[in-house]
Write a protein that binds this DNA or RNA. Structure first.
Length: 505
RNA sequence: GCGCCCCUAGCUCAACGGUGGAGCACCGGAUUCUUAAUCCGGAGGCUGGGUGGUUCGAGUCCCCCGGGGCGCACCA
């Protein structure tokens, strides 16, 4: 803002912001007027800030290294001392200080310096030195404006706090809030680590349809869309499971997909309409291999992304050090209830037990669903350190192989940490007639109005009629794992651009 | 869907129903060792929107609208 009383800010909303922006524009244009390109097409950088800090970690104050470097990044602080200015340049690796001495700068560099604003992208060339106070710096001789920032940055100390703006303008959140950057660094290191582990274990990363005629492989309400070319309604996938198993039928013995699923359901601290899952299928294995793989994925992600294995989740502390115990669901549930229950128990007894433990039930629920809901309310919240809970009712596991000797239970596990489910897996059901019968049962339930019923998928049944080998499958919730590793409580804090209502104009 | 809370300068925050303040950022000046630099001076608001209500008086209380957060329900 100018203090000239002859140029007051117009009394319009946002006029002050306009004025701040106009000052930055004017500086940019002033440079252009002197023949300095404010938007050069490239810059050749020699070193990252972190590389310089690593190489010169132990220099005493007031050292000259003789090393000439070219660095580039965003200017996030500027401390002018007359003929000496300190700049703080941040590149992807972190900060490095620029020492800008008037006597050492070229005429070009001086012009650039005189027109800099916080937030500008700049490049600098000079010698690596330490300041008298010992700060590693580039004693700059030449300076380039690489791109002007026309908008003022958030508070340099407090950053950006308003959640609305942080989510809508994540780029500003990332550049202003180191904590946000840290969270997403954890996320993408964890994702890369899991991909790398999967590759090491011989899994092929594949891509299956997101637009599906019928969303299957899980229980959820889908997003609906329409194909103009085919004039058919399509769903966005709720899980890739059925397609991945068809690939195993086709001979890909180890496949995985690490990608987005979409569920048209409630939005909350722990639920996002689009979320990321890693699903993997391995021929010739059963749920044991699934648990082994899940455990290795979690440990690898933690080790690579954070270098730690102990994490805080709200008031709880969890230790991800393997091996994770494997417990029978019915044993755990029996222990808490004080009596054993089983899907073969009388429905009314199970329903009464639910009521007794404050678990709301719906009329259509069978005994297996009631047992599962009991577990979900009574056992799951009590589990802190990682534990594999094994053995789920067939009624809630329509794609899992039933347990030998007990047709009401399935060879399925869930990995539970801090009272939440992180992964789910099973020995895949590969008997076509049984799969068809399970689909038929749930389709009947759906016809009776149960929105949560699996739809029958004839193409999937046909596929496994060609023969699905014994197969171990897992699904792992990536967002939730990242929340744990980054120690944040909201799923939106681990999703770069979470779904929000559109901005008002 | 229900309940509670939030929205004040570019950013972060103040303001008992009684004339809307501060820090940072910005503009001008001083400063060759700062790193949340310091010092002097200046500018910047009709408080998310409402030609709604109550009141002598509303940023503050009530109502409507918009956006967001948290909790519950559904779900992973």
């Amino acid at each position: 803002m100018t203090s000239d009383p002859d140029s007051p800010v117009d009394e319009q909303p946002g006029a002050y912001l306009e004025a701040l922006s106009a000052e930055r524009r004017a500086k940019r244009d002033a440079l252009a007027g002197r023949g300095i390109d404010p938007y050069p097409s490239r810059f050749d950088r020699t070193d990252l800030a972190a590389e310089l800090r690593a190489r010169h970690a132990d220099l005493v104050p007031d050292t000259r290294t003789g090393q000439q470097v070219r660095v580039a990044g965003r200017l996030l602080a500027l401390r002018r001392h007359g003929k000496l200015t300190f700049g703080e340049l941040h590149d992807v690796s972190g900060p490095i200080q620029l020492l800008l001495q008037e006597s050492a700068l070229t005429e070009h560099a001086t012009a650039v310096l005189d027109h800099l604003d916080l937030g500008d992208w700049i490049g600098a060339a000079g010698e690596v030195v330490t300041s008298r106070r010992g700060e590693l710096s580039v004693d700059t001789t030449e300076l380039w404006l690489l791109a002007k920032s026309l908008r003022p940055l958030p508070d340099k100390f407090h950053g950006l706090a308003e959640t609305d703006t942080r989510y809508r303008q994540r780029e500003v959140d990332l550049l202003a809030n180191p904590e946000s950057r840290r969270v997403f660094d954890v996320r993408f290191r964890a994702v890369a680590a899991m991909r790398s582990l999967m590759a090491e274990e011989g899994f092929l990363e594949v891509e299956t349809p997101i637009l599906q005629p019928q969303a299957g492989g899980a229980i959820a309400r889908p997003f609906l869309t329409h194909s103009n070319a085919l004039d058919i309604d399509l769903s966005l996938r709720i899980a890739p499971e059925l397609y991945l198993k068809r690939l195993v039928v086709g001979g890909y013995e180890r496949v995985f997909e690490l990608a987005r699923n979409f569920r048209n359901e409630g939005v909350s601290t722990r639920h996002s309409p689009e979320f990321t899952a890693l699903e993997a299928y391995r021929a010739f294995g059963d749920l044991t291999e699934g648990m082994d793989l899940s455990e290795r994925l979690v440990v690898r992600a933690a080790d690579v992304a954070t270098g730690r294995r102990v994490f805080s989740v709200g008031e709880r502390t969890v230790d991800l050090t393997p091996p994770y115990p494997r417990r029978d669901l019915l044993d755990l549930l029996g222990g808490v209830l004080g009596r054993r229950v089983h899907p073969t128990d009388a429905v009314e007894d199970l329903r009464a037990l639910c009521t007794e433990h404050g678990v709301a039930t719906l009329p259509g629920w069978g005994p297996g669903k009631l047992v599962f809901e009991l577990y979900d309310s009574v056992v799951l919240p009590t589990l802190d350190d990682p534990v594999f809970v094994c053995g789920f009712p067939v009624e809630v596991s329509p794609l899992a192989r039933s347990t030998a000797g007990d047709p009401t239970m399935a060879d399925r596990f869930e990995l539970c940490i801090a009272g939440r489910e992180f992964a789910n897996g099973y020995s895949e059901l590969n008997i076509p007639e049984e799969q068809e019968e399970r689909f038929r049962a749930t389709a009947a339930a759906k016809a009776q109005g149960d929105l949560e019923a699996h739809p029958a998928d004839a193409a999937f049944v046909r596929a496994i009629e060609y023969g699905l080998p014994p197969t171990s499958g897992i699904g792992l919730g990536v967002d939730r794992l990242v929340m744990l590793l980054a120690e944040v409580e909201a799923i939106r804090d681990v999703i770069l651009f979470p779904m929000l209502r559109p901005e008002a104009d």
